[in-house]
């Protein structure tokens, strides 16, 4: 966890460097390539991809699905062992969460909840790797940046939140009809004469769902990562601070185990609740 690399000179540079995603997009000269500075990444505009967040998240997602799929393929009613035990425990946990909060009938909700929970947990878990390892590894591979925690990238959290938002709208319309869905937006809670107020309130209510989902996760993880980085800076400030920083890193990491699990769980629970609302008639 050495703080200073020879490319960055001040603490501010160090922080900025660690918080910069590895972007792949169209450069000003018309070629597609990796951005080597923060400014370059910014200039790419919307049509660029954060290779690090996407890559890590896809690798983790594939890892999750592959390891669970292995169990699913040979799942039997016999005596479970080892990994199957763990997977079944997770599934039971998710299933009971879904049963507790979701009253409709939809075979998609439980797998959705499980994907959300495990995937976000794994992405958050990347936070427990030392903050310098990602960038150091990237330097060894000749890459300018590498942010290893996908959930500290708002694109990732918003990406998932938007998918869930579309699912909410899709199932709302499917279950209540387009009229029912729009009616809920327009005629509640004040009846048809309060339509503008209703639209405003319910519209905000609807939009707030994905935004709060995405921002809550992003904010927590970003802040956590930032604290790791700030503590890491102390390593460069003499032996006394170094020891203190080591203790703090450890303490924060322990605390973070709770946070990453909790955030994944909150994201999952809210997803289930939103899906439940999409399946319920308002009264």
């Amino acid at each position: 966890m050495s703080a200073e690399t020879h490319e960055v000179h001040s603490s501010s540079d160090y922080i900025k460097h660690h918080l910069q995603n590895l972007a792949y997009g169209k450069k000003p000269d018309g070629h597609w390539g990796l951005a080597h500075t923060a400014q370059e990444a910014k200039d790419m505009g919307f049509w660029s991809f954060n290779v690090d967040s996407l890559g890590v998240s896809i690798v983790l997602g594939v890892l999750f699905l592959w390891s669970f799929r292995r169990v699913a393929k040979k799942a039997s009613a016999g005596v479970p062992s080892g990994w199957q035990n763990f997977v079944e425990w997770v599934i039971e946990f998710i299933d009971s969460s879904v049963r507790g909060s979701f009253s409709g009938r939809n075979p998609m909700v439980a797998p959705l909840a499980m994907t959300v929970f495990i995937w976000i947990f794994l992405m958050n878990f990347m936070d427990l790797f030392a903050v310098d390892h990602g960038p150091e590894l990237a330097k060894a591979l000749g890459l300018p940046f590498f942010k290893v925690v996908p959930t500290t990238d708002p694109n990732i959290t918003f990406g998932m939140a938007i998918s869930i938002f579309f699912l909410i709208i899709f199932y709302s319309i499917k279950n209540k009809g387009l009229g029912g869905f729009l009616g809920e937006l327009a005629f509640q809670p004040f009846g048809k004469w309060g339509m503008p107020a209703n639209l405003l309130l319910e519209g905000v209510n609807l939009i707030a769902k994905p935004i709060s989902l995405a921002l809550r996760l992003f904010g927590n993880m970003y802040a956590g990562e930032m604290i790791f980085i700030l503590i890491a800076i102390m390593f460069g400030a003499g032996i006394g601070f170094g020891v203190l920083a080591g203790v703090l890193q450890w303490a924060w990491a322990v605390f973070h185990i709770l946070i990453i699990t909790l955030q994944a769980f909150i994201f999952m629970t809210l997803t289930i609740v939103y899906m439940d609302m999409a399946h319920q008639e308002h009264h």
């Binding site: 997009g25 505009g45 660029s48 967040s53 990238d153 708002p154 694109n155 918003f158 990406g159 998918s163």
Partner: peptide, 11 residues
Amino acid sequence: MNITATLIGQS
């Protein structure tokens, strides 16, 4: 920290 097409990819 920019919103980019990563969003669509992740979605």
